[in-house]
Design a protein around this nucleic acid. Structure first.
Lengths: 299, 299
DNA sequence: GGCATGATTTTTTTATATAAAAAACAGTTT
DNA sequence: AAACTGTTTTTTATATAAAAAAATCATGCC
């Protein structure tokens, strides 16, 4: 049976929307609201039905009126607000870097299904996805073997990343000065400076900025295989740094400075300089990740 | 219900094995036979049971005797000798390059399941796999969109390939002269010459040789992400050239010559020369694939 | 004791069933 | 006519069930 996490999240989002409206005012039409919330009209209608049952809105034909502002208690909560696939993915990553999993080990899908409280098909999907990430391998007998978030993995991932970033860097610098990417780059530079000025409070926003800078540079010569590898990196970073909050502020501070040097290198027009700054930044990122893996798995 | 394609293929393989034995001679033990055939003892025992029922072998405790040589009629045949996943994959690729699929189109999984005569889960697995190949994309609403075997796809794939092959080439040439890879390379050179001498009859064996040469060069600095992309390339070549037999002989003849130039470049120790030969070969491969796509989809 | 067979248990693969969600269809209202 | 709502159909996500295949256990033979 499919979960209705989407319905629940949409319901909550809809409450957020209503909280900004004034009671007594009519609401937008169904297609409009559905578009705003990014779901199908079917889902929106289920939400509206519930809102009507709770006497938050009154529905009469196409006249929809907000009866009262939503309250704290109106919101749905619970663990099932998260899509199933994401939940499984999260638990799996936690399992993979935890003590129960060692590199080279056979993965027992049935057992994971029991542990995570989901069906085997959900596990299958998850394993299939992570095998493309290179964290797992399929054996000839159909079983899955864990490869793990090892030093090898990080090395191979960063080798690839470095190589690709240099390639993108070369192409980026070959862009004519009037190309919009240069404007976007100075926009990002400004944002970096703004963050740096208030780094103590804003250091958590770095990961978004990081993402955008690398996407800008690599977006010049789009390549789906590269984007795929970037996606792998995102996921690894996302999970890994979620558990490794240690030194986060210091780490991000350093990274912002490195980004600024990288941007300066690009803007200088001097390829050697840009490459050096880029290489330096990637090297730091690599050793930071490696160090935090070694902490997690023991020396 | 799971298919028993493995059992059937193992049964046929076992007949092949028995065909090389002499009637009256005892057979190897179950674990030994299972290992030879690369399956579990459970599957082997099912095969032995059938062989016994057909009076091909007599089983009495641990004494197994071949009663008669297997005949043509003993072999199992039919479409279900192919593993389900492979069958779906094959049909899907044919569908994708056929007239029913145009780039950008939404893929209807239910419909494909009906067309191919399989369940939706089999289709789902297949779509999930090909999405990692960059031939499909998943939309936010959960649907799959075909991207197709387009010029863009080939361009991006070959950009990646070129870029990775050059990287591997550099590392390969940095190997010390006593490294076993050099011996392996001259072995491959010999094989290329042997094939060239008899190209009219042996041109079909080229794809194996191609695979081995590129694997040797790229195997020096193994990287799972690279291997993944190589896998994509293999699959594309496999399917595409299966349908495009036109000029196969001429094409392979040219490629063998280019390989020899590439090998000579590597052995010369001159990086520029090796890179040039490599670049030339990859360029030919790229335009050959592009040309054959344009033939397939119209000018 | 080491390896073989026979029987049992576990795990994986695949089809099917059902709820959720999307899309399509058909009237209605403005 | 354009856009809306109510209804129906189609498609997707997920759990479940059952066969195939692998692994494990128990026992016996040399």
């Amino acid at each position: 049976m499919k979960t209705n996490a989407l319905y629940k999240r949409t319901y909550n989002q809809c409450l957020d929307l209503l909280a900004r409206a004034a009671p007594g005012r009519p609401l937008a039409s169904e297609p409009q609201m559905a578009a705003t919330l990014g779901v199908s009209r079917t889902t929106l209608r289920a939400v509206l039905a519930e809102l009507s049952a709770r006497r938050i809105v009154a529905i009469d034909g196409r006249a929809k009126v907000l009866l009262r502002l939503p309250e704290r208690a109106d919101y749905l909560d619970g663990t099932d607000l998260e899509p199933l696939a994401e939940m499984v993915e999260r638990k799996f990553m936690a399992w993979m870097v935890g003590p129960e999993c060692s590199p080279g080990q056979i993965i027992n899908g049935l057992d994971l299904a029991r542990q995570f409280g989901v069906s085997t098909s959900a596990i299958r999907d998850c394993l299939s996805k992570f095998s493309h990430f290179g964290l797992l391998e399929r054996q000839s007998n159909g079983r899955w073997r864990a490869l793990g978030l090892t030093v090898d993995f990080v090395t191979e991932l960063f080798d690839m990343r470095e190589f690709m970033e240099f390639r993108a860097l070369d192409r980026f610098m070959a862009l004519p000065p009037e190309h919009p990417a240069w404007r976007a780059l100075s926009g990002l530079e400004e944002e970096h400076r703004a963050m740096l000025a208030d780094i103590d409070r804003r250091y958590r926003d770095f990961s978004d900025l990081d993402h955008r800078l690398h996407r800008l540079i690599n977006g010049v010569a789009p390549n789906r295989f590269f984007i795929n590898i970037q996606g792998v990196m995102s996921v690894i970073f996302h999970y890994h740094y979620q558990w490794n909050k240690k030194d986060e502020k210091e780490r991000n501070h350093v990274a912002v400075e490195e980004h600024l040097a990288y941007i300066a290198g690009l803007e200088s027009g001097d390829i050697a300089k840009a490459r050096a700054a880029c290489g330096f930044h990637l090297k730091t990122a690599r050793s930071t990740l490696l160090a935090s893996i070694e902490v997690a798995t023991g020396p």
